[in-house]
Design a protein around this nucleic acid. Structure first.
Length: 570
RNA sequence: GGACGGGUGGCCUAGUCAGGAUAUGGCAGCAGCCUCCUAAGCUGCAGGUCGGGGGUUCGAAUCCCCUCCCGUUCGCCA
């Protein structure tokens, strides 16, 4: 048990004992106060009603019955609150020794023996990833890393939509349009291919013959024509290779790629249709089958979820049901990171799974699209910022910043560091904001390297590394008697919260807590750095170096959890 | 029109589910700090009707009702 947990336990026991002494067993809450007046506090307002006494009286009375013991250093009654201070020695020795001992595993929760799958990104393989959807891989990858630290056995998965009009249109374009006409802005597979997709789309609007050819291809695809299917598959694979390059540059690697066409080929989608047809919620309209979701709280126009066309072919969400039956059978928990446009589809999916008596449900997590000041991003309209371009800009900006500060680094080293910084800035800036919040992309904000930013965390980490590098060998020690400065105490207190932050970020799926926490650590460290000398600190040197090492360990772990590199110098 | 999400200083943002002390940070602004471990930093100042209105409560950014603005969605598309 960590020292913070022990402290909370001690407070709970002390308050319960004191309450029993004044003849009460009322339930109470322990909260972490926003002020520095206490480490933990028990508000007595809740007790006031049942005890029919003023909160001030109750707090004062309880305080008299509580003596400092265990990790409790003191207790004071302040305007209706019972304020507890934690014993500094216990806090510091407990936290520092735990970090020194567990090192890079500090903050990890014990294995749960459960598997969880995080499906994320899954963008349509018809064009490069743009910033509008960039939240998906970043949130998904960070969540996966949080859950892994929470003790789950995590798998990440990309669902490749290689079925339908969009990929067929792309494939038609690649086969029928000359490469001299389809000009790309950037020589990279996905950018090269999207040029064909754009032209093909334009042609379907202006030329009915093209439109008819694509429809015919689509019919052949759905009838299982092996030539069309393999053509589509080949194009999609090429596109996906381009997307993977971008993801990889962002530090995102996925474990499993599942192809949508699989559920047509193996008959799973067909089985779903047959099972759904027998449900009491099923109905038929001109040969097309649907579910009436009125009883599931879906009302109005969208209560009807159509799961087959009148020609009997399946629809996207139908195949998604088959996919989820498969996925749910593979893992204990299934989490889907989805754009907010998927809300209705996700609801329909879950209703269908319930109708099919699924004993588990996927847990959807929605994010709002990133828009531009001039409006929604659109690949087809060319109102778009591609992730590849953002990466280039950010890395280039990082390069100019490093070059302005350092003249002792080799070109190679500089390129390595600036890549880490540029990517770190992007990932941090996106994941720091609650996913459901609308986000307008601005270059000035995306390239902010100060304050609440990725580079700020990286800089603090590099500072800690620099001190440790200069220190050379030293004796690791948890010695509270040498760490008495207020900044040292504050820093230790922040470090001690790591495990609880990881737990909330993972279990409650609040990934934005991680960057906030990282900022808190970096900030506390920089204050300590400015106020307390480390290398020239006499007999406190080992204790302080140990604290610096603890900070480096936590910052490194936070950065890793965010999928951001932790440079040792910058 | 229905459903779901968002609205917090000039800008961005935490806190809202589980109501409590002076509403969290950052950017931009102003004033300071490098003979000392990386100034991408630190210190201080200034800046707030928590969209608006009612209600519940000893106490509301937080809960309830109404309302306004923004986003998403309401295909036999994916």
């Amino acid at each position: 048990m960590s020292v913070m947990d022990a402290f909370r336990d001690d407070v709970a026991k002390a308050v319960a004992d004191a309450l029993s002494k004044i003849g009460s067993d009322t339930a109470f809450e322990i909260e972490t106060p926003s002020t520095d007046a206490a480490d933990l506090a028990v508000p007595c307002f809740i007790l006031a009603r049942s005890m029919k006494r003023s909160p001030t009286d109750i707090a004062a009375d309880l305080a008299r019955y509580i003596e400092p013991r265990g990790t409790i250093a003191s207790v004071h009654a302040v305007s209706g609150y019972l304020n507890f201070m934690m014993d500094r020695t216990a806090l510091i020795n407990g936290t520092v020794s735990e970090i020194l001992e567990k090192k890079d595993r500090y903050g990890y929760l014990p294995p749960k023996g459960k598997t969880v799958n995080v499906e994320h990104t899954s963008t349509n393989p018809t064009g490069p990833i743009h910033v509008g959807r960039a939240r998906n891989p970043i949130i998904g990858d960070t969540l996966a890393k949080c859950l892994s630290r929470c003790g789950y056995d995590v798998t990440t998965e990309y669902y490749v939509n290689d079925v339908g009009k969009q990929v067929v249109t792309l494939t038609w374009g690649v086969s029928n349009i000359s490469g001299d006409v389809a000009k790309a802005d950037r020589n990279k597979t996905d950018h090269n291919l999207v040029a064909f997709y754009r032209l093909a789309n334009d042609m379907t609007e202006s030329d009915p013959k093209v439109s008819e050819e694509i429809s015919s291809m689509l019919r052949r695809f759905e009838n299982g024509d092996p030539e069309v299917i393999s053509n589509v598959r080949r194009t999609t694979e090429m596109m996906l290779a381009g997307l993977k390059e971008t993801l990889s540059a962002m530090g995102v690697e996925l474990d499993v790629y599942t192809w949508e066409s699989k559920y047509i080929e193996n008959g799973d989608a067909r089985n779903v249709v047959e099972k759904l047809k027998t449900s009491k919620y099923a109905g038929e309209d001109d040969g097309a089958w649907y579910l009436d979701l009125e009883d599931f709280g879906v009302h109005g126009m969208n209560k009807r979820f159509t799961f087959t066309r009148n020609d009997g072919t399946t629809l996207y969400t139908t195949r998604d049901v088959a996919y989820h039956e498969d996925k749910l059978s593979r893992y204990d928990r299934v989490i889907n990171v989805l754009g907010e446009d998927q809300k209705l589809g996700s609801k329909q999916l879950m209703c269908a799974l319930e109708i099919l008596s699924s004993n588990k449900m996927p847990e959807p997590m929605f994010y709002s699209f990133v828009s531009l000041p001039e409006g929604k991003m659109s690949t087809r309209k060319g109102v778009v910022v591609y992730l590849d371009d953002l990466i280039d800009e950010s890395v280039e900006y990082a390069y100019s910043e490093v070059k302005a500060r350092r003249n002792d680094l080799s070109e190679e080293k500089m390129r390595e560091i600036t890549k880490t910084i540029g990517i770190g800035a992007i990932r941090y800036n996106i994941v720091r904001i609650q996913p459901e919040k609308q986000l307008v992309f601005k270059w000035s904000e995306a390239l902010n390297f100060d304050g609440n930013s990725g580079p700020f965390l990286q800089y603090s980490h590099a500072r800690a590394c620099s001190i440790l590098r200069k220190a050379g060998n030293f004796t690791r020690t948890a010695d509270a008697s040498k760490l008495t400065d207020e900044y040292e105490v504050k820093l230790v207190k922040v470090l001690s919260k790591f495990a609880s932050v990881i737990a909330s970020a993972g279990e409650e799926r609040k990934v934005h807590l991680i960057p906030a926490y990282g900022h808190e650590v970096a900030s506390a460290f920089n204050q300590f750095y400015a106020a307390v000398p480390v290398l020239n600190s006499g007999d406190a040197k080992d204790a302080r170096l140990s604290l610096v090492e603890c900070t480096r360990t936590v910052l490194n772990n936070v950065l890793e959890c965010l999928g951001i590199g932790a440079p040792e110098e910058m």
